[in-house]
Simulated scan of single mutants.
Amino acid sequence: MPELIHSGKSIEEATKVAIMIHGRGATSASILSLSQYLNLDEFALLAPQAQGGSWYPYSFMAPDANNEPAFSNSVEIINKVVQNLLDKGFQSDQIYFIGFSQGACLSLEYTSQNAKKYGGVMAFTGGLIGEKLNPTKYKGDFLGTPVFIGSSHKDMHVPLSRIEASAELIKNLGAEVKTLIFPDTQHTIRQEEIEWINRNMLK
């Protein structure tokens, strides 16, 4: 198994698990601090740590080969966490994904490559990964999984056009997608995003 920090309820007690995926240059501990703001009291929280603090070396829209093998390895790390939960008897709809920036991109990418009914996917500033979007990479059916993407209208790392194209593709895989786009230019997580998620996805 990858290096994981576990917080919240024990796996044995929990009926829901959130896989929390940090951004570039951050840590599993930093993404876990979001649990102070999100309604996650009933969850087991699992936060994998990227080697060297980065899931892949270049922009999420760099030529695909530039981010290999790190990108494929990172997808496999998330897959191992998910498979371990399924082996322990969790259903996919008891599994939630929460990510920021690189972690948001990885959350959207993993779940779209393996679309099924998840508890929810919460992506704070992210989109699907690749120089160009390749719909043939993605398979399965989200079966109405709620997917949230929040961002600035002009984020320095994640263009709005990629968020919109990602949301469309994810909708076509059967997800209920909500995007919240803000008029600022901050690369951050906003109070309004937290409140929307608490009210609609973690109530």
Rank of each mutant, 00 (worst) to 15 (best):
C105R: 05
V81E: 03
E131Q: 15
P63V: 09
N39G: 05
F71R: 07
F90Q: 10
L106N: 04
M61H: 12
Y110C: 11
V75G: 01
C105A: 15
T125C: 07
A50E: 08
A65D: 12
S92E: 12
V82D: 10
S59V: 01
G120V: 06
L108T: 08
Q91D: 13
G99M: 06
G53A: 13
I95R: 07
Y118S: 10
S72M: 00
K139N: 14
K88F: 00
G52M: 09
I95L: 13
L133E: 05
S54R: 13
W55N: 04
I95Y: 12
Q91V: 06
Y118G: 06
L38G: 07
Y118W: 14
M61T: 13
P57D: 07
Y118C: 09
F90P: 06
P69N: 01
D64N: 11
L106Q: 05
Q51S: 14
C105N: 15
Y37R: 14
A65Y: 06
I78P: 01
A65R: 10
Y37T: 12
A70T: 01
S101D: 12
A65M: 06
N114K: 10
M61D: 14
L108Y: 07
K117C: 03
I129P: 03
Y138N: 04
N79M: 03
S72I: 00
S107E: 06
P48D: 11
A115I: 12
Y37I: 05
A70L: 00
P48I: 11
F124P: 01
G126P: 07
A70Y: 08
G53D: 13
K132G: 00
L45Y: 12
Y96I: 03
I129G: 02
K137R: 15
A44C: 15
N39I: 06
A50I: 05
V81G: 03
Y110M: 10
N84V: 00
T111P: 08
V75H: 02
F43L: 13
G126Y: 07
K132M: 08
A47D: 12
K139S: 15
F124R: 01
I98K: 04
A47S: 15
L86N: 02
S112Q: 09
N67G: 03
N114H: 15
A65G: 01
D93L: 05
G130R: 10
K116Y: 01
D41I: 02
S74R: 03
D87K: 14
E131R: 08
L45C: 11
N67R: 04
Q94Y: 10
M122Q: 01
G53S: 14
V75Y: 01
P48G: 10
E42Q: 15
I95P: 10
G120W: 08
Q49V: 02
G103A: 09
N73V: 07
Q83T: 14
A65E: 14
E109C: 07
D93F: 13
G103W: 12
G53Q: 12
D87F: 08
S74M: 03
N79S: 15
S112K: 07
Q102I: 03
Y37E: 14
N114D: 03
A47V: 13
